[in-house]
C-alpha cells in the first residue's frame, strides 16, 4: 500500500505551516522527514496520519484517508505523537494495551480469538522494546527513555501497516536509539511503511531509505539520503557549512 500526498496544505492561524506537499511513499521503506525547527515536520506527519484538517488529499492505497472510518484508519496507521505522556499513572502493560483499542470488536473477529491476538501483540511489543521486566511498573516511575520506549511499544502493539512516529529517538540513549532504529528498519523490511520525523541527520543518512526535507512548510527534496542531505541542501535549508565523511551506512556529519 502506498501513502500519497497530493498538494497537502495545513493551515494554522493566518498562514500555511505545510504548503502544497506532494510525494508518494512506498511500503517497505523507512522514510525520514527532516528539517529545521518550525519547518512543519510534525504538521506534515499528522496530516499524513489523517489527524489534521487539510486541503489537498492524503491517499492510502488510493483511498482518501479523510474518508476512511476512524477505527479502520487507526488499524492501518499507527501514530506516535511527539513527547507523549500519560494522563493517568497506569502500568506499562496497561499503556501498551491501549494500542489494541482500534481492534476492539473489529468486523469479522470472534471475541476470543481477538483477546488472544491482543495478548500476543502486547507481549510481542513489550519484548521488542525490552520492557518485559518493567511491564508492571507505573508510568510515573519510568525514566524518560523508558517512557519513550513504552509509548513506541504502544504503537507497535496496534500492528499497523504504516508506522508514523514523531521524533521517537529524541529522548533515547545511544544504545536504545540504535535498537529502535534497527527495529524500525526491520518493520520496514517486513513490508510495513515507516515514516519518522528526525532531528539527527546522521541517523537519517545512515538508516533511511528515503529522506523528505521540509523547509518553511515546503518539501524541498524527496530523494535517497545522499541526494536529499547533500552539502547544498545543508547550506540552503539549515544554513550550515558541512560535509559527510565515512562509508555508506556509517557516515558522519562534519561541520565547517
Amino acid at each position: 500500500m502506498t501513502l500519497r500526498a497530493q498538494n497537502i496544505s495545513v493551515r494554522r492561524g493566518q498562514g500555511d505551516v505545510v504548503k502544497e506537499a506532494s510525494f508518494t511513499l512506498e511500503a517497505g521503506c523507512l522514510t525520514a522527514i527532516v528539517g529545521p525547527n518550525g519547518a512543519g515536520k510534525s504538521s506534515l506527519l499528522a496530516a499524513l496520519a489523517g489527524l489534521l484538517p487539510i486541503t489537498g488529499a492524503a491517499l492510502m492505497g488510493g483511498r482518501e484517508i479523510a474518508g476512511i472510518p476512524a477505527r479502520e484508519r487507526a488499524r492501518i496507521i499507527g501514530f506516535l505523537p511527539q513527547q507523549s505522556d500519560a494522563a493517568w499513572d497506569v502500568s506499562v502493560q496497561t499503556l501498551v494495551e491501549l494500542g489494541r483499542l482500534p481492534w476492539r470488536s473489529a468486523p469479522g473477529r470472534p471475541a476470543r480469538a481477538s483477546r488472544d491476538e491482543d495478548r500476543a501483540a502486547v507481549r510481542q511489543a513489550l519484548g521488542v522494546m525490552e520492557l518485559e521486566e518493567l511491564a508492571q511498573r507505573r508510568v510515573s516511575h519510568l525514566s524518560g527513555g523508558e517512557r519513550a520506549r513504552a509509548m513506541m511499544a504502544r504503537v507497535l502493539a496496534g500492528e499497523p501497516q504504516w508506522i508514523l512516529a514523531d521524533e521517537p529517538l529524541a529522548s533515547l540513549d545511544l544504545a536504545h536509539q540504535q535498537r529502535l532504529t534497527a527495529q524500525l528498519r526491520e518493520e520496514a523490511e517486513r513490508g510495513r511503511g515507516v515514516v519518522v520525523v528526525m532531528h539527527d541527520l546522521a541517523a537519517a543518512m545512515n538508516h533511511a531509505d528515503r529522506v523528505i526535507v521540509i523547509d518553511r512548510g515546503r518539501v524541498v527534496a524527496h530523494d535517497r539520503p545522499e541526494a536529499a542531505l547533500s552539502a547544498t541542501y545543508l547550506r540552503e535549508v539549515w544554513q550550515v557549512e558541512a560535509h559527510w565523511t565515512g562509508e555508506a551506512g556509517h557516515r558522519a556529519l562534519i561541520l565547517g
Binding site: 499528522a46 496520519a49 489527524l51 476512524a70 487507526a74 496507521i77 499507527g78 501514530f79 506516535l80 505523537p81 507523549s84 505522556d85 500519560a86 494522563a87 493517568w88 497506569v90 499503556l95 491501549l98 509509548m151 504502544r154
Partner: peptide, 9 residues
C-alpha cells in the same frame, strides 16, 4: 489517557 492527538490516531 495518551492525549488528544494520540486518541484521535
Amino acid at each position: 489517557t495518551l492525549g488528544e492527538q494520540a486518541a484521535l490516531s
